[in-house]
């Protein structure tokens, strides 16, 4: 566990990006074998807001995202240095169980990946596994609530026993979001959640993200500048393993401070 002393030292580092950070990353380095993917990242993720991570392929934004719930642990040769705090707890060095961490920091992936089970079981799986519900009624309620929050309930309520894989791509992605929020996480990580979806399904997910941020802290990796501009309050621009610029989304997209940011978002990079 991180000591009080640790926290004090920590607060001295003065790089506040937001006044109420949910997650604080300081001096994070990530190596895949000999090659360094992230270089000394300092970034705050504000509570109850959407932070988008943008940057060219291979810039380290997904690597950073996966650091936030220790998804990099399972990658061979991957080494994470530095400190990432979730509500003041160091998620790497405090003996925190990664499984419990991932219950608090959920994730939605690029390609919808529902379990080959019924729609109901997809959503019920997490609460059953973590034992956060005590009986069938509670479970039913949790499933309905999660599907409602994911904006999917009306479309699937009459076919909860049908396989989740039979839904359309956009519905599957919302099912995955419902599955993620069913275990009441605090943070939701999204890795290009709309890149496989059509504009209508994308708009529904974006509307949902805006709704979800009232309850959850959201970090989204996206290749779509417009999506970052539409859904997030803060944007961080990654380039070659570094955070080049981070700030209010509206400011970053109208008057970026760094020439590299401007070059990238206006399509001049290269």
């Amino acid at each position: 566990m991180s000591s009080a002393m640790d926290m004090q030292n920590f607060n001295i580092i003065n790089d506040p990006i937001t006044s109420e950070p949910k997650i604080i990353a300081r001096d994070v380095n990530v190596f895949y074998g000999a090659s360094q993917a992230l270089k000394s990242i300092n970034l705050d993720i504000g509570a109850n807001e959407v932070t988008s991570l943008i940057g060219p392929s291979g810039c380290g934004k997904s690597t950073f995202l996966r650091c936030l719930n220790r998804m990099n642990d399972v990658i061979e040769n991957c080494m994470v240095e530095g400190r990432i705090n979730l509500d003041g707890i160091d998620i790497y060095n405090s003996g925190l169980d990664p499984v419990l961490l991932r219950a608090r920091v959920g994730m939605v992936f690029q390609k919808p990946n529902p379990f080959p089970k019924s729609i109901y079981d997809n959503v019920a799986y997490g609460p059953k596994l973590h034992g956060t519900v005590s009986n069938k009624d509670e479970l039913d309620e949790r499933v309905e609530k999660s599907l409602r929050r994911a904006g999917l309930w009306d479309e699937v309520k009459d076919r909860l026993d049908k396989p989740g894989t039979g839904l359309s791509g956009g519905q599957q992605q919302r099912l995955c979001i419902a599955r993620a929020i069913a275990i009441n996480p605090e943070v939701i990580l999204m890795d290009e959640p709309c890149s496989a979806l059509d504009p209508i399904a994308t708009a529904k997910i974006e509307e949902l993200i805006d709704e979800l941020r009232k309850r959850f802290t959201i970090v989204i990796v996206t290749h779509s500048m417009q999506q970052a501009a539409r859904v997030s309050q803060k944007t961080a621009f990654f380039h070659m393993g570094e955070v080049v610029e981070v700030g209010e989304t509206d400011k970053l997209f109208t008057s970026p401070q760094d020439d590299r940011t401007q070059g990238y978002i206006t399509g001049r990079f290269g």
Partner: peptide, 9 residues
């Protein structure tokens, strides 16, 4: 083109 930043300005 949906211009941003200096292009938008």
């Amino acid at each position: 083109r949906q211009p941003v930043a200096n292009d938008l300005r």
